[in-house]
C-alpha cells in the first residue's frame, strides 16, 4: 500500500496522506492502462480507508495534468466493428471508469487535485471528483468533446453542474472553449490559484491541514456537503453510448488521430 508504480501512475503514502502522480506520456491520456491503475488505487484506498485522511492527485508531465481520454486507443478499438459491438465496448469502459470515479468522488478521505497546464476532457472529469482543486497559473480547463460528436463521458456534466452554475457548464460544453486558471477561480471551479509549479506543494500543505481534523467528523461533513449525482451519471452513460454509435464520431476520431498538424488541441 505504501508505494506503487504502475504504467500510468504511481502513489506513495506518507503518514495519513497518499500522493498519486500521473506519469503516462504524452499527457496522461486515460485509456485501459490508466483505468487498470486507477482500479488498483481504489481497491487499495478502500482497504486502508481508516489509515488515509487525504489523497493528492498531480501530474509529473510538464505539459499539464491530463489531456483527457486516449482517443487513439478509442479509435483503434472501434475500427472494423459493427455499431452494436462498438457500443458494447465503449459501455464496458464507461461502466468501469464511472465505478472508479464514483468511488474516488465518494472517498472518505479528503481529495485534492493539484493541476497545471492542460486539464481537458477526461482530465477535467478526473479533477472534478476531487473535493478541492488547486491550480497554478498555467492551468487551462476545457470540455472539447462536442468536436468529436460526443459529450463528456466520465461524469463531467453531472459533476460540473453539481459544483457550478449550469450557465458555465453550457458555455464550456457548447463552445468547446478553454478557460484559464484565473477565470476558473472566479467561476468557482478552482479553489486556490498559485504560482507556476507550486500546486503540488500547496496541495500537500492543504492535505496536512485536512488531516488534522477528527476523521469521523470530516467524513460526515464530506458526505453532507458532496452529494454524488448517481442518476445523472447513469443518464450520461446512456447518452454517450447513443451518440457514440453514429458514423460522425468515427469520422471525427479518425480526423483527430490522423491529424499531424499543429492544431489538434485547439477547438
Amino acid at each position: 500500500m505504501n508505494e506503487y508504480t504502475g504504467e500510468t501512475l504511481s502513489w506513495h503514502r506518507a503518514g495519513a496522506i497518499v500522493e498519486v502522480t500521473l506519469h503516462r506520456r504524452p499527457l496522461n491520456e486515460i485509456g485501459r492502462a490508466t483505468l487498470v491503475d486507477l482500479e488498483k488505487l481504489v481497491v487499495t484506498l478502500d482497504a486502508r480507508k481508516d489509515d488515509v485522511a487525504a489523497v493528492v492527485f498531480s501530474s509529473a508531465i510538464e505539459a499539464g495534468f491530463c489531456a483527457g481520454a486516449d482517443l487513439r486507443e478509442l479509435y483503434h478499438s472501434m475500427k472494423g466493428l459493427d455499431a452494436e459491438s462498438r457500443q458494447s465496448g465503449v459501455r464496458d469502459f464507461l461502466e468501469r471508469i464511472h465505478r472508479v470515479l464514483n468511488s474516488l468522488d465518494a472517498l472518505p478521505a479528503v481529495t485534492i487535485a493539484a493541476v497545471h497546464g492542460i486539464c481537458f476532457g477526461g482530465g477535467l472529469e478526473l479533477a472534478l471528483v476531487s473535493d478541492i482543486l488547486i491550480a497554478d497559473r498555467t492551468a487551462r480547463f476545457c470540455f472539447p468533446e462536442l468536436r468529436l460528436g460526443l459529450v463528456p463521458g466520465f461524469g463531467g456534466i453531472p459533476r460540473l453542474k453539481r459544483d457550478l452554475g449550469n450557465r458555465l457548464v453550457r458555455d464550456l460544453l457548447l463552445t468547446g472553449r478553454s478557460i484559464n486558471a484565473q477565470k476558473a477561480l472566479e467561476a468557482g471551479l478552482v479553489n486556490q490559484l498559485v504560482a507556476e509549479g507550486q500546486a503540488p506543494r500547496v496541495a500537500r500543505l492543504t492535505a496536512e491541514q485536512a488531516a488534522k481534523f477528527d476523521r469521523e467528523t470530516a467524513r460526515a461533513a464530506k458526505r453532507f456537503a458532496k452529494p454524488i449525482p448517481y442518476a445523472e451519471l447513469r443518464q450520461e452513460i446512456e447518452l454517450f453510448c447513443e451518440l457514440f454509435a453514429r458514423p460522425v464520431v468515427e469520422d471525427a476520431l479518425r480526423k483527430f488521430v490522423e491529424d499531424s498538424g499543429a492544431l489538434p488541441y485547439l477547438p
Binding site: I118, R140, S178, N180, A262, L263, Y265
Partner: peptide, 12 residues
C-alpha cells in the same frame, strides 16, 4: 516553433 499545446500556453 510551437505546437497547439504551446499555443495554448501562449494564449494563457
Amino acid at each position: 516553433g510551437i505546437d497547439s499545446l504551446q499555443a495554448l500556453d501562449l494564449l494563457t
